[in-house]
Simulated assay, not measured.
Amino acid sequence: MARRHAAGFALAELSRGRSRFTDEPFSLRRIYTHVIEEYTRHHGHADLIRERIDGFTGE
């Protein structure tokens, strides 16, 4: 599904939206990178909680 949504855009730039901090246009590459970073951060938090509950640590 992501490929279908991204098919109309170049990875370098999106036609809509600008960063509120730098006023630069959003890039699809940056959005995907941000989502992956956030996902891994929260996945790591869930891992810590699981370790506290069951006492087993990852490898």
Rank of each mutant, 00 (worst) to 15 (best):
R52G: 10
I31E: 02
R4Q: 10
E59P: 00
F26T: 05
T33N: 11
Y32C: 14
E13K: 02
I36W: 07
I53Q: 07
A46H: 05
S27C: 12
E24V: 10
E38D: 10
A12W: 00
E24H: 03
H42E: 15
A7S: 03
A46L: 15
E59M: 07
H34I: 08
H42I: 14
F9T: 00
I49E: 14
A2I: 12
R16T: 11
F56W: 08
A46P: 00
T22A: 09
E59T: 01
R52I: 08
R29S: 13
E51P: 01
F56H: 14
G17N: 04
H45A: 08
T22H: 03
G8A: 08
A7L: 06
G55Y: 02
T40Y: 09
Y39H: 13
S15Q: 09
I31M: 11
A2C: 12
A2V: 06
E38P: 00
M1G: 09
D47C: 12
R4V: 09
T33H: 09
G17H: 01
G17L: 11
E59I: 06
F26K: 01
I36G: 08
H42F: 14
Y32S: 11
T22I: 08
I53G: 03
E24S: 08
T40F: 10
H43E: 15
S19F: 05
R50S: 06
S27Q: 03
H43Y: 13
R41W: 07
A2T: 04
T40L: 12
A46M: 15
H5T: 03
L48E: 14
L14D: 01
F26I: 09
Y39P: 03
H45Y: 06
G17C: 10
F9G: 00
H5I: 06
V35S: 12
E38C: 07
A7F: 02
I49G: 08
R50N: 02
F56I: 13
G17Q: 03
E51R: 03
R3Q: 04
F56R: 14
L14C: 07
A2S: 10
F9Q: 00
T33K: 10
E59N: 04
S15L: 12
G58R: 04
A12V: 04
E38M: 12
P25A: 13
H45W: 08
T40N: 09
L28A: 12
R41C: 10
R20Y: 06
T33I: 14
S27W: 01
R16D: 15
A6G: 01
S15T: 13
R3E: 06
D54H: 06
L14W: 00
D47I: 08
R16G: 08
H43L: 15
R52F: 12
T33F: 13
I31A: 07
L28K: 00
T40W: 09
G55D: 05
I36M: 10
D23V: 12
S15V: 13
S15Y: 04
T57K: 07
F9E: 01
D23L: 15
G44E: 11
R50G: 02
H42A: 09
R3M: 07
G17P: 00
I53K: 04
D47A: 11
R16N: 10
E38S: 05
T40Q: 11
R4A: 14
A7G: 02
F56L: 15
R30I: 05
T33C: 12
D23M: 15
R18L: 12
I49V: 15
P25R: 04
L28Q: 03
I36N: 10
A10C: 09
V35I: 15
E51D: 12
A46Y: 07
R18A: 15
R18E: 11
A10K: 04
G55F: 05
G58H: 06
